[in-house]
Design a protein around this nucleic acid. Sequence first.
DNA 1: GGAGCGATGTCCT
DNA 2: GGACATCGCTCCG
Length: 197
Amino acid sequence: MARLLPRSFYLDSPDVVARRLLGKLITRRIDNQKLSGRIVEIEAYLGLDDPAAHSYNGKTARNAVLFGPPGFAYVYFIYGMYYCLNVSCQPDGHAGGVLIRALEPVEGLETMARLRHLPASAKPQLLTSGPGRLCQALDITRAAHNGLDVTSRTSPLQILDDGFEPDLIRSSPRIGIRKAVEHPLRFVIEGNAFVSG
DNA sequence: GGAGCGATGTCCT
DNA sequence: GGACATCGCTCCG
């Protein structure tokens, strides 16, 4: 039986939490249906010390969740079309978070395909490989999910540990950023077919 | 299969 | 007004 990750899981620095989240299950409850996917790619954003992080220039209305307590969803809108899902890390008052970049779909693939406007026969890699894609596949939006507690028993968006352990984790530079491009803060499960890029 | 590029809303300077 | 933690399409080989 999968165990809901507690708030203490997210209390550490984003690079530590990012590694630790690889292989964990994200579950999205929509009415009576459950969608789930395993985290296979993730990036760390370090807060005030990280020029690539949304929190770098201080707290604003948009990024306030990153400065709050750990274990809350930070969902933002990007390029006029897509949402991206992060989870806040570090104690209340300290900015930091992790960006979920790719999932291996586990449950509800037909619904994911429909939400992605793809035929049911579409390759599963097209469902949740990429931060914008996975939000569309799980119907995650800023209006509905920003600021949500992912450690709550009643949350429609949770992260669980089902005992899976990645064989090998590889780090590399983060994707799609223009500042602080050199830091190896992207983490993937080595060899997993659902990693993006 | 890879490079180039347009779509498109929100936030901050 | 510009930048943006993206994606999917076109065009070319």
